[in-house]
Design a protein around this nucleic acid. Sequence first.
DNA 1: TATATTTTGGATACAAGATATCCATAAAGA
DNA 2: TCTTTATGGATATCTTGTATCCAAAATATA
Lengths: 142, 142
Amino acid sequence: MQVTKTLDYALRSLTYIGHKPIVKHSMREISEHQHIPLNYLAKIMRRLVKKGIVKSMVGPDGGYTLRKAPSDIRLRDIYEAIEGEIRIVDCMDGNGICRLHETCPQLPVWDRVQLSMVKILEETTLEQMLSDRGIRGFTRVN
Amino acid sequence: MQVTKTLDYALRSLTYIGHKPIVKHSMREISEHQHIPLNYLAKIMRRLVKKGIVKSMVGPDGGYTLRKAPSDIRLRDIYEAIEGEIRIVDCMDGNGICRLHETCPQLPVWDRVQLSMVKILEETTLEQMLSDRGIRGFTRVN
DNA sequence: TATATTTTGGATACAAGATATCCATAAAGA
DNA sequence: TCTTTATGGATATCTTGTATCCAAAATATA
């Protein structure tokens, strides 16, 4: 029940790019400024590109730009680009029958948790994250 | 960002016990009825005992009983007994300084997500879970 | 055209944590 | 004393997140 490092990397990269959305930013640049292993970052950027969150240009002076306006990029999209469909319990997709043959007392709760989480991720845009900067005056551990 | 099998096991055990809160239930019994590996279940029960959620009696005719009324056992307690303090991002405890030396754009969101999650876990009692049974008519996959 | 710089893609390695197993010991009822 | 149960510690396995390596494709520019 934790935010993965990978998702963190993705968000750091996107907020980094988001600050200067017009300029192209190379992986190398992002990697160095955000302390993300270059080769690993490559994998991450790929997923963001495939989901249409980011646009890539190869060759010298290549790099990445946001494909949409920050106000149009939802945290949910980013989450799903990295982690896939949101599903906090395995049985929630419904593709199977429980070996216990009984109704599940847990599911209603997890359902509520997941819904509230999705709601927040859905409401939150990259733009908000960019302007939220510093509200809590918190500095990152890693 | 997923509910672990271990937490699932714990909840299955507790709801199982909760249905007949007065009777003692042995690990063996729980293990068989809920399809949980016996030796692993032992570890789980230990944590529940230590947190005062469950009472244990050793010896023949030993077993487990709830220590409190189901209405007095919060899902949050169970969660924390199994997983430790709720913390969906590592930096949230604040024991450290970010190498990036900048305020973190992510934290406000994760903070909101965590708060809403804690709220639900806090509100939900074992009693509720027991009576929720069947509301959604859902059958468990595993 | 040649060269350098960048992204892309695939394969693979490494690490950490969740999950599971084994065994010896202590408690307690019959 | 014997049997049944929980306890405790050590260790193994498996899964998944994280990271590394390398070759190939694209493209600007000298």
